[in-house]
Simulated scan of single mutants.
Amino acid sequence: MGLKRRTGTKNPSILSSEFFIQNHADIISCIAMIFVVGLLFQVTAPLASIFVVMHHNVTEGLDPNDIVLYTYGRQDACVITFYFLIAIVMHAILQEYALDKLNRKLHLSKVKHSKFNESGQLLIFYLISLIWGGDIILREGYLLNISQLWQDYPHNEMTFMFKFYFIVQLAYWLHCYPELYFQKVKKDEMKPRIIYTTLYLVFLTAAYVLNFTRIAICLSVLHYVVESIFHTSRLLYFAERSRAASYGFTVWNVLFVLVRLGSISLSVLTFWYGLAKQQVTPAMDIVTGNFNTQLIRINCLVAVFLLQAWMMWNFINFHMKRLRERAAQAASSKKKALAKKEKKQKKDELKKVSEDEVNELPEVDQNTKKDLRSRTGVSTKSKRN
């Protein structure tokens, strides 16, 4: 593939850290190709299919018109591993052929360069997930019949695209950890990235394992709408499209609060009212996939509440920080303007005092003084010329 990070003119030594960073996409794409090529041979096909093909098919009957349904299981870890490798390769392709070229045109600073790459990568993923998840919601009919989010629980059977959506989600957020090393992210930027990556993984994995995938896909699509607008606005800001970025951030400010309220409302409706009317079990039933216990539902609801509250807290702190920065900037500008005005006033006062002193002299001395000033001015001009 030839995807190499152009970080220097000298070629690093083989098996060194720098060599692996520059050539990680080629190395990982070769590993992924081993699984794909393995499907072509009868001997290796059973082993390779564990990593490539979707497993845990629970569809009964041989009718080709039947919808193929899947549940989750241990072999999903192998499939996630394969698409984890694919995510790293796709990340490198997008970085090399799109984001790096844009960075060179925009001439961004190192700080903006890192944030631009982060927003560019996340925006593409959010848009794909938004379109994909929205299509699943429309196909399954959740938008017109919201009661399907809790009816007929446990929801341990999924269509191919439904299950594939969660497999890709988990694989993508897992690949964000090694990307911190591949992209040479600074230590001060690592913490927030690790935090939001871990939160995505924890909530998506919990929803997938506990069979709360229907409510999870709706909440994720709502969240991805807001995040897409934010990262689009940030990219426009870095591209110096200030007016468009300002409109985008304004829309983001409004939708962020609305989506937080909508996520809480949808969670209360599902976990507190909807699932309480379904098949409630006193203890977890792993065999049937029924995790509809009061303890689990309350914990899930509290977890969603805390997540939304944490996001709102960060949102408020972000805007308060911006207000303080603007107030400090305005005060600094006002102070500079006042100092400049005072300096001008002192200069005018000194000039006025000098003129008053000349006026107090006798008429002959005044003319001599003015003549000396005019000559001094002329000589000064001639020297400058």
Results as ranks from 00 to 15, higher is better:
residue 60 E to G: 01
residue 119 S to N: 14
residue 369 K to M: 11
residue 174 L to W: 14
residue 131 I to G: 12
residue 183 Q to C: 05
residue 218 C to T: 03
residue 94 L to A: 11
residue 89 V to M: 07
residue 188 D to T: 10
residue 308 Q to K: 10
residue 165 Y to R: 05
residue 127 L to E: 00
residue 72 Y to S: 09
residue 42 Q to F: 02
residue 198 T to F: 14
residue 277 K to D: 10
residue 318 F to Q: 14
residue 319 H to Q: 15
residue 328 A to K: 14
residue 56 H to V: 02
residue 157 E to G: 02
residue 307 L to D: 03
residue 314 N to K: 09
residue 61 G to D: 08
residue 14 I to C: 07
residue 116 F to L: 08
residue 366 Q to A: 08
residue 195 I to L: 15
residue 228 S to W: 05
residue 220 S to C: 04
residue 206 A to E: 00
residue 94 L to H: 08
residue 185 V to D: 02
residue 326 R to Y: 11
residue 348 D to A: 12
residue 320 M to N: 14
residue 299 N to P: 00
residue 285 D to P: 02
residue 115 K to T: 04
residue 116 F to K: 02
residue 82 F to W: 06
residue 114 S to T: 12
residue 133 G to N: 04
residue 65 N to H: 11
residue 348 D to H: 05
residue 295 L to I: 12
residue 185 V to K: 07
residue 332 S to L: 08
residue 276 A to G: 07
residue 166 F to D: 00
residue 279 Q to Y: 06
residue 201 L to F: 13
residue 26 D to N: 15
residue 296 I to M: 11
residue 83 Y to H: 14
residue 122 L to F: 06
residue 240 E to V: 03
residue 164 F to G: 02
residue 134 G to I: 09
residue 176 C to H: 08
residue 134 G to A: 08
residue 242 S to C: 04
residue 192 P to D: 12
residue 265 S to E: 01
residue 323 L to R: 15
residue 136 I to V: 08
residue 250 T to L: 14
residue 183 Q to N: 13
residue 55 H to A: 09
residue 123 L to Q: 09
residue 171 A to P: 03
residue 46 P to F: 05
residue 97 Y to M: 03
residue 172 Y to P: 01
residue 142 Y to V: 01
residue 234 R to I: 03
residue 358 V to G: 02
residue 182 F to Y: 15
residue 203 F to A: 11
residue 347 K to N: 10
residue 50 I to H: 03
residue 321 K to L: 12
residue 199 L to V: 13
residue 26 D to G: 06
residue 63 D to S: 12
residue 174 L to A: 12
residue 262 G to Y: 00
residue 55 H to I: 01
residue 117 N to L: 02
residue 38 G to R: 05
residue 157 E to I: 04
residue 112 K to R: 15
residue 200 Y to L: 12
residue 347 K to T: 09
residue 125 F to A: 05
residue 239 A to I: 04
residue 38 G to M: 05
residue 114 S to G: 08
residue 26 D to P: 03
residue 366 Q to E: 10
residue 231 H to D: 10
residue 294 Q to Y: 13
residue 317 N to K: 14
residue 35 F to I: 06
residue 372 L to D: 13
residue 161 M to G: 01
residue 292 N to A: 04
residue 342 E to D: 09
residue 155 H to Y: 08
residue 6 R to H: 13
residue 35 F to N: 03
residue 339 A to N: 11
residue 170 L to E: 00
residue 171 A to Y: 02
residue 177 Y to G: 05
residue 167 I to E: 00
residue 54 M to R: 05
residue 291 F to E: 06
residue 197 T to S: 15
residue 71 T to N: 02
residue 49 S to T: 07
residue 262 G to R: 00
residue 266 L to T: 01
residue 281 T to Y: 05
residue 61 G to L: 06
residue 138 L to D: 01
residue 378 V to Y: 12
residue 221 V to W: 00
residue 169 Q to I: 01
residue 174 L to Y: 08
residue 237 Y to R: 09
residue 322 R to Q: 15
residue 64 P to H: 10
residue 366 Q to T: 09
residue 297 R to P: 00
residue 384 R to S: 12
residue 102 L to S: 07
residue 373 R to F: 12
residue 10 K to N: 13
residue 156 N to Q: 07
residue 310 W to L: 11
residue 84 F to A: 03
residue 78 C to T: 09
residue 126 Y to P: 00
residue 267 S to P: 00
residue 235 L to Q: 00
residue 17 S to L: 12
residue 271 F to G: 00
residue 176 C to S: 11
residue 70 Y to V: 01
residue 76 D to G: 04
residue 274 G to N: 02
residue 231 H to E: 11
residue 195 I to H: 11
